[in-house]
Design a protein around this nucleic acid. Structure first.
Lengths: 338, 338
DNA sequence: TATAAATAGTTAATCGTTTAAAATACGATT
DNA sequence: AATCGTATTTTAAACGATTAACTATTTATA
């Protein structure tokens, strides 16, 4: 149907072997073929609009110049921003990206890994979902180059690019404390993933360090699959008791967006009734009537770092692992009562 | 380094030819191989954790079960939402997606098309950028199955999935007029792309139909490459003159977000000083102090429709074109003065 | 002049599949 | 026993590239 032009066609037209064509087109310099012959071949290639069949090339060469990218969800701006950076950085080095969204489900993530490996990607960048440890171990065992981003498993040595989540949460909460808040709540996801554990640990440690004793229902967790309802119940819980919170720290942008919508519905005023700090950024945070204080993640650096670590592994093919941890940046605006 | 297990290994282990293995694994039913042999082979395959090499398969079969996706920019939520839908829908049918962002630049789009075709994708879904007509014609000439989304070229017959942009703009502006606005401006992109032309035409026609004569500087266009500054100047222009606008229609979400930030800086109050309607949706629109009235695009239906049209072309391999045009939905909220 | 070295090009194997065609086995039919 | 038919399995070519190894030709060297 299409792309009929192959090495053979050029060879035929010029009257040489396909090998000559291949040499001429690939190693222009290295004197495998005379200059005039090379010129003739290149002219013919151009005339026929020859485009090499990467599939054939990949099969022979054992590399596809393709990277796999497994995100939690492309439609989440945080991840799609990273995807864009990764795309650009990969292209810069001659790589194409195949992607997929795991939806935080390990089965989907397994599926994606298999699809990507069957397609012989040269390496993978993964936002690992909960309970995907065995998948990561499998990748190691199979010696597939990979880099984890956003999260990682501390007990499994591997390359990763992430934020110092503990510190990020610690500083966010410290900031709220410094603003005079004393009953600080945190809304997180119910998951064992390390990044979330670290954020919770940071929160708790900060409270401890400023001498505040945390009430049981200040730290609530909602399930990824039931965000809207979960957020509502969680916030109700934080407010209902004898010690209603006067500040709330959201562990992700999605939680913040859902949470703030509910807080508005309750007619609570930010920051007077409730001070807010969130993770991640977003246009929505700028547009909120009281601009949000948030923990900024260096999206560009994360994406770029991930690609670099990955290409490093691929190209040096020693299983050298690299780990990059970024420091958080707290963008302080009105919502935290500053 | 990895994925060492091939048909040959299974064949060796069981003591048959690779052909037998291939038959057993693929056409279980069609009695090419005895049931017991098939069972033995499948057992061995499982034991060795055999994963077929899709690259080799693709080369032989002439199809990759891969779709190419060219967006203007994955990091734009409108496009990333579509990407997610396309991903899911493609997966549903056994296809994987390779993507790229054109950044509205025809050179980048050419690049991407070549990359995708060299990788032998079975078809492409494209958000075409300005001046990419020749690329589309090339795809037709090469008989590459493709579907355009969001925009299309009316003079080039092709499959597409889009919104009735004329009607969308017409209704948006009509709504503003009905709300009593008389000096309605529109902020658009400077581009010949049909969807934008249609949006402008809808705007102008609506003004005409309600008997308003448009002032020259009510309709402003900004360049994609210079949004921030362009928006600022455009809005200044709309306000400065003897006839400052009392309503503004934004042609895209990005324009709206930038525009509203500037409008806030000017301390204009929405909707009293200025009524607003925008295209597309976004969390940001919900969070604006005065929730935005907007033209909703059926993202899910667009993505799903595109994949279906494309698979149709691929699988029936007659160049049958399909065109889907959705009706807009105006979500009316406070910003338009309702 | 004989021979080595450099140059230019070809042959053929290979990557991991699929699949048409040929080969083999084996029981049934005459 | 010869023949046929059916079921099963193997052979080998093909997809489109790359590349080691070989051949043939020219040029340089002793």
């Amino acid at each position: 149907m299409r792309n009929k032009v192959s090495l053979k066609d050029i060879a035929q037209k010029v009257g040489v072997s396909t090998a000559a064509v291949s040499y001429a087109l690939n190693k222009g310099k290295e004197g495998k073929v005379s200059d005039e012959m090379a010129a003739k071949i290149r002219a013919a290639a151009k005339e026929l609009n020859y485009q090499p069949n990467q599939i054939a090339k990949s099969l022979k060469m054992g590399r596809t110049n393709t990277l796999g990218l497994i995100l939690a969800d492309v439609s989440n701006p945080f991840f799609s921003s990273i995807a864009r950076v990764i795309e650009d950085e990969a292209k810069e080095h001659g790589y194409t990206v195949i992607f997929g969204s795991s939806d935080e489900k390990p089965e989907r993530s397994w599926d994606l890994i298999n699809v990507l490996l069957n397609r012989q990607v040269d390496g993978v960048i993964i936002v690992p979902s909960e309970s995907s440890e065995e998948q990561i171990l499998y990748l190691k065992e199979q010696k597939v180059p990979f880099v984890l981003i956003d999260r990682y498993f501390p007990e499994i040595p591997s390359s990763f690019v992430a934020l110092d989540n503990h510190r990020a949460a610690y500083e966010a909460v410290m900031h709220l404390a410094r603003m005079g808040r004393r009953r600080i709540g945190m809304l997180a996801y119910k998951t064992n993933l390390y990044h979330m554990q670290e954020r919770k640990r940071g929160y708790q440690e900060a409270l401890l360090d400023v001498g505040l004793t945390m009430s049981k229902n200040w730290l609530k967790e909602v399930k990824y699959g039931d965000i809207k309802n979960g957020v509502k119940n969680a916030i109700d819980g934080m407010l209902s008791n004898g010690e209603p919170i006067d500040a709330l720290f959201f562990a992700t942008n999605t939680l913040a967006i859902n949470g703030l919508k509910y807080i508005d519905k309750l007619k609570l005023k930010v920051p007077d009734d409730l001070a807010i700090v969130s993770f991640d950024e977003g246009e929505a945070f700028d547009f909120y009537y009281c601009p949000l204080t948030y923990v900024r993640q260096p999206v560009y650096e994360i994406g770029k770092g991930a690609v670099q670590l990955l290409l490093d592994q691929i190209e040096s093919s020693n299983g050298r692992i690299g780990q990059i941890q970024f420091d958080p940046e707290l963008i302080i605006r009105k919502s935290s009562g500053a």
